[in-house]
């Protein structure tokens, strides 16, 4: 924080109620303006800071837009091959069972090329947190169809809209893993409004607290936007998310721990 006199004077009688957590580095995010990744990174790292577990946490970054997550997250991290984050996290957690381990993956990574690794990690009940960013598109490679792309949605590889009769249907990965006995806590959240951000952060906090219990996998989907890939300004992309994504991917808990 700045220490110049004017600032000090200005701050007198005021409390800082929101600031960048130390668990984020000073590196500027490379994400496009308005991209939900930044918010998701922030609430994840804020939670780690608030729980005081930064020194015990190992993160796994995916291939996709968030491939450089480790530039921003000020903790030990591994960069996994495309789709393999859950397998990498399994390797880490199995040899460091007392550490908090999370993966941070997009829809292409988690729900297409990494489907097997994801489902089997959850099915084994790996004690990890899987953060799944679903923006229904491949952002990094330039806006191609993702497994989660909505029906009729236009992408660079579905230029006439996703025609489900020959290209298949959007995959609800979160619904799928909620059925697995290894899943302990499965929820779908968003980060497009202040309230949604508060709820999503609470979900991430729950997930880390559950990880302490060693009861199984926690899976937090975050329905997010992709202004560049959707070819909209950030504000419109959030409206589009609300009108099109949320009816198909409704927010809320899909599996919560039974009360003891």
């Amino acid at each position: 924080m700045s220490t110049d006199v004017l600032t000090q004077e200005l701050q007198q009688g005021f409390d800082c109620v929101y600031e960048k957590p130390d668990t984020l580095t000073d590196t500027r995010f490379h994400y496009c303006p308005g991209c939900g990744h930044g918010v998701a990174h922030r609430i994840l790292m804020e939670t780690i800071q608030e729980l005081g577990i930064a020194e015990q946490t190992v993160g796994v970054a995916p291939v996709g837009c968030s491939v450089f997550a480790y530039h921003y997250m000020n903790i030990d991290m591994q960069e996994a091959a495309h789709g393999r984050a859950c397998a990498v996290a399994t390797g880490v957690k199995r040899v460091l069972p007392d550490r908090y381990v999370f993966t941070y993956q997009g829809d292409g990574d988690l729900a297409a090329i990494g489907t097997a690794e994801t489902i089997h990690a959850v099915n084994r009940g790996e004690n990890i947190l899987i953060v799944f960013i679903n923006n229904a598109i491949y952002g990094m490679t330039g806006g191609q169809m993702a497994p989660t792309t909505l029906a009729k949605m236009v992408t660079s590889t579905t230029p006439y809209g996703r025609e489900t009769d020959w290209i298949g249907f959007p995959l609800k990965m979160t619904d799928l893993v909620a059925h697995l006995p290894g899943a302990y806590y499965v929820t779908r959240q968003a980060v497009h409004t202040p309230n949604a951000v508060r709820k999503a952060k609470k979900a991430i906090r729950n997930a880390f607290e559950y990880q302490k219990l060693n009861k199984g996998t926690c899976f937090v989907e975050i329905v997010s936007n992709c202004p560049s890939g959707w070819k909209m300004n950030p504000s419109d992309s959030n409206k589009w998310l609300e009108e099109n994504m949320l009816p198909f991917y409704p927010l809320g808990d899909l599996k919560v721990p039974e009360k003891a």
């Binding site: 009688g13 005021f14 409390d15 929101y18 960048k20 500027r28 918010v39 922030r42």
Partner: peptide, 19 residues
């Protein structure tokens, strides 16, 4: 109220509130 900081994707906002 912190709403702006909550939705800021670039963690660009610090919020202060009167004691």
């Amino acid at each position: 109220c912190t709403n702006c900081a909550l939705v800021c994707p670039d963690v660009a906002i610090t919020v202060f509130r009167e004691q």
